[in-house]
Design a protein around this nucleic acid. Sequence first.
DNA 1: AATCGGATCGTCT
DNA 2: GACGATCCGATTG
Length: 203
Amino acid sequence: MIRTFNTIKRDFYDRDTLIVARDLLGKVLVRYTERGYVIGVITETEAYTDDQASHAFAGQTKRNGSMFGPVGHAYVYFTYGIHYCMNVVARDTKNSLAGAVLIRALVPLEGREIIIKNRKGKLPLVVDGPGKLTQAFEINAKCNNLDLTSSDSGLFIVEGPSIQDRYVSITPRIGISQAKDLLWRFAVTQEGEKVISSQCIKI
DNA sequence: AATCGGATCGTCT
DNA sequence: GACGATCCGATTG
């Protein structure tokens, strides 16, 4: 059976990186593997532009090249000798040279068996942590620069539930040593869950 | 519950 | 040659 998906169009990614990071919450990441589809709702993101914590800060290199490339593509890099991290290239191309949104967590919707196998454990309620996420979704170096607006790429993003601002916590990014003051991390909170920062950007 | 160190390697200085 | 947009298991309190 052939499934059709309505992917999010490129315009969506051609906006300020911070706005896209916020708006990716609730969107749905789809990965086509040998064993079938793995699908999840994005619940945590971080924005990286040309700030001091960004790979793009020192300018374009071979590694970070896709951050400077067309929006709506993937930027996947290898780190700590172990892990891959997945970003969505996004920026206002009129005003910005480089930008990407790191996907840090999502809630599994489909392909639970595949996730369990890839992660060698129980199915988590939330796949949290950029390295764990790429492991669960079989995302690796070959995925770098894939077009996330095309369902042919085997890695793409489609519409999902809208997330109200009151359920979005905005905090500093995780694991960085520079630009710690910037509140560029966006995470969906449960109703009743403690919100670490009540600040919110205007959309 | 919180902290610590080992794993492991591509990229940039 | 140093160090990461990390993870996990072990240890300690």
